[in-house]
């Protein structure tokens, strides 16, 4: 609970400061790519947490490293007149969706397990009652 509160406080602070920051239009492409990279690593962290492989250093390095490298690639693409940002967007959105499917599957399987347990409990009680009767 404490962790979630801390995270929510940080996110709210980020949104508040972000609303007071103006990004020039010519940099918006770089920022968009960086956002995608960061979102990808956050979702990656969730899916890694499900498999119990989450490590803070890997998360941090991925978060900042991916963002910086993708910005660098987009910059090189603009210099070479190649739309590399398209490739970056495709790769990161693909990874994002993969991570999301992993999270979704885990979540649904957990719910299914709970439902099954309840049903089995009910059946057991029913059978017990029947035996008693």
């Amino acid at each position: 609970m404490v962790g979630i509160v801390i995270i929510i406080i940080f996110i709210l602070a980020g949104i508040f400061t972000g609303l007071n920051v103006a990004i020039p239009y010519s940099y918006s492409q770089y920022i968009a790519v960086a956002i995608l990279a960061c979102l990808d690593s956050v979702f990656g962290a969730f899916s890694a947490n499900i498999e119990k492989k989450f490590s803070l250093t890997i998360f941090l390095s991925g978060f900042f490293g991916n963002a910086l490298i993708s910005i660098f690639l987009v910059y090189i693409g603009s210099k070479l007149n190649v739309d590399i940002y398209l490739a970056v967007v495709i790769v990161f959105t693909g990874r994002l969706l993969n991570n999301f499917t992993a999270i979704r599957r885990d979540f649904i399987s957990k719910i299914d397990n709970k439902v099954n347990k309840k049903e089995s409990n009910k059946k057991e009680t029913k059978t017990k009652k029947a035996k008693v009767n």
């Binding site: 940080f10 980020g14 949104i15 920051v21 990004i23 968009a32 960086a34 956002i35 900042f64």
Partner: peptide, 15 residues
């Protein structure tokens, strides 16, 4: 993790 998410939400909101 909160600090990283702080950066993410900052970028998102600004963008």
């Amino acid at each position: 993790i909160g600090i990283t998410l702080f950066f993410l939400s900052l970028l998102l909101a600004a963008q």
